[in-house]
Amino acid sequence: MDITPESVASLLNSEDYGDRLTGINQLRELDPKAAFPLMQPVINDSNVRVRYAAVSQMSSLGVVDREKSLELLRDRLRNESEADVQAAAADALGGLKLTEAFPDLVAIYRQTEEWLVEFSVIACLGEMGDPRAYDLLVEAVNSDNHLVKTVAIGSLGELGDQRAISVLQPLVTDSDWQVRSRLVQALDRLGGETSHRLLQQLAEDEVEQVAEEAKRILNTSTER
């Protein structure tokens, strides 16, 4: 049976949430311009699994209408009751680089008690590359949550603000090797003489995975 806008619309209007989930998955088979209008109603579906599936597709379908996508994702970020859907909304905002939502993302980070939402907001801000995010990312590097801390390191690297190097420097001796591993990647993105020196230190790291990655980056930079 061919997948058409009409057949997908029928699934999305079904009272069975399983049918609606199937319809959301089948939207991938349609032209984005046809899929986007069909997606909009199910973003506010009564079933959390359906809402999550719909919001998760917005990073690809949202390019059809960025203004409408901003409106829909802002609503889920502000008014969603489930943390995983809120997190998916933040992910989509980052994927679409909708920097207009920056104030909303900061507000949600301040308000939420859900680590998953904090994680997605910090990852989103790095992906957006908005320079306004610097102070919040520095704050997140000091988070008590390991996953939020590591993603903040990566996001500072993505942001590319050279001030981050002095913030990240103490992490060369962090007790968590995963933090040091993420630090290697961030320093590679930030570049510069100080980053190079810190990478030389990390190339002597006691954890082979960290040391080898630092050596690879140093070797690559030498060949340039």
Rank of each mutant, 00 (worst) to 15 (best):
Q111T: 12
A89Q: 05
I108H: 00
A92C: 06
V117T: 01
F102W: 11
A90C: 07
L116Q: 08
K97I: 12
A88C: 13
L116V: 11
L98Q: 07
T112C: 14
P103W: 05
D104T: 09
K97G: 10
L98E: 02
A88M: 12
L93I: 14
A123L: 11
D104F: 05
I108L: 08
G95T: 14
A123S: 15
D91V: 01
L116D: 03
A92V: 02
I108T: 01
E100R: 10
L105R: 06
L116F: 08
S120H: 04
L96S: 05
F119L: 06
I122V: 12
A107Y: 05
G94H: 09
I108W: 00
V117N: 00
S120Q: 04
I108C: 02
D91F: 02
L93E: 02
K97N: 12
P103V: 08
E114K: 05
E118G: 04
R110E: 14
K97Q: 14
A92W: 02
V106W: 11
F102C: 06
V106L: 14
L93Q: 03
V121C: 12
Q111N: 14
D104H: 07
A90K: 00
K97C: 14
S120I: 00
V106M: 12
A107I: 08
F119Y: 11
V106Q: 12
P103Q: 08
S120M: 02
F119V: 01
E100L: 07
T99V: 15
K97D: 10
A92P: 01
A92Q: 01
F119E: 00
E113N: 15
F102D: 04
A92H: 03
W115K: 03
L116Y: 05
A123T: 09
V117F: 00
I122N: 02
L96H: 05
E114F: 05
A90H: 03
R110W: 06
R110Y: 08
T99A: 13
V117H: 00
A107G: 13
F119D: 00
L116H: 04
L98C: 06
V106N: 10
G94Y: 08
A88V: 12
F102A: 07
D91T: 02
L105A: 09
L105M: 13
G95P: 13
A90L: 04
A88P: 10
P103K: 09
Q111Y: 11
V121D: 01
I122H: 06
L98I: 14
L116K: 07
T99W: 09
A107D: 13
L116M: 11
V121E: 01
E113G: 14
V106Y: 10
K97E: 15
G94E: 07
E114I: 03
W115H: 06
G95I: 15
G95Q: 15
A101Q: 05
T112I: 12
A101I: 09
A88K: 06
Y109A: 08
I108R: 00
